[in-house]
């Protein structure tokens, strides 16, 4: 059912990727997305796929978990595909947006699966620091962002729970299509209300444990930047600079 969904979830393992500094990881993700968006060549995109595959293998998170993330987003991907085919003349042209989307989802799930929400918040915060110049409340924004990602599993769990609760009333029964359609509609509203309730419980629990959005707090387990981090970042930045150089010159 819905509860095996992996978007926004953290998968604990001891690996080189898990031990990377979150700021470097956010930076890498950002560069990777830029590379994928800027470049338009199938062979190259295929190489980028191999690259993220290599990183995924190094993360020691089973590959099927990444598959699950893509599978959960199937409707989204199909919708993008349909639009893409509608607006492009040639078949190959239309494949680009699709390929890119898959690469981006793959890479960002690499980020979320290997970085605990706590670390991710810190990584994003440093990444967005330049925005402080424009008086953007960087800490609050980065935390809200992380909470939004973290909230996806909560909503899905709630939806799953509502589906179960409804099923529990009609186990081993054949229902008319009419009733079934009505049931499907009736999932949305309670899920919405119940996830609100859950959000309140969680925010209460956080306040009771002395959490305050407006106050500074320590992040105790942010890994230091090591040689491996610099190496991986260098690869990303080199490719990115090469592409920008070619775009500007060529």
């Amino acid at each position: 059912m819905l509860n095996n969904i992996t978007i926004g979830r953290y998968y604990h393992k001891k690996s080189l990727i898990h031990q990377m500094n979150p700021f470097i990881k956010v930076l890498c993700t950002f560069s990777y997305v830029l590379i994928v968006v800027l470049f338009k060549d199938f062979v190259f995109l295929f190489l980028l796929l191999l690259f993220v595959l290599l990183l995924a293998l190094m993360s020691r998170v089973p590959l099927y978990i990444y598959g699950q993330v893509l599978w959960t987003l199937k409707y989204f991907i199909i919708t993008i595909a349909i639009f893409s085919f509608l607006f492009h003349d040639s078949f190959t042209e239309a494949l680009f947006p699709l390929f890119r989307l898959i690469l981006i989802v793959f890479y960002s799930s690499l980020l979320t699966l290997t970085t605990s929400p706590n670390q991710l918040a810190k990584g994003l915060e440093i990444f967005m620091r330049p925005l402080l110049l424009f008086r953007v409340p960087v800490k609050q924004v980065s935390l809200s962002f992380v909470h939004a990602i973290r909230f996806i599993p909560v909503v899905l769990d709630t939806a799953d729970n509502v589906v179960r609760a409804q099923k529990a009333r009609f186990i081993n029964e054949e229902l008319s299509y009419q009733k079934r359609a009505l049931n499907a509609v009736q999932i949305i509203q309670p899920t919405f209300l119940k996830s609100f309730g859950k959000a309140e419980i969680i925010s209460n629990a956080m306040a009771q444990r002395l959490y305050n959005l407006n106050k500074d707090r320590t992040f105790y387990d942010i890994p230091k930047i090591r040689f491996f981090d610099v190496y991986i970042l260098a690869i990303h930045l080199t490719i990115l600079t090469a592409i920008i150089y070619r775009l500007v010159i060529g």
Partner: peptide, 10 residues
Amino acid sequence: FVLENKKKTP
């Protein structure tokens, strides 16, 4: 979590 909120050192 609570220790981080209490601003203890890492």
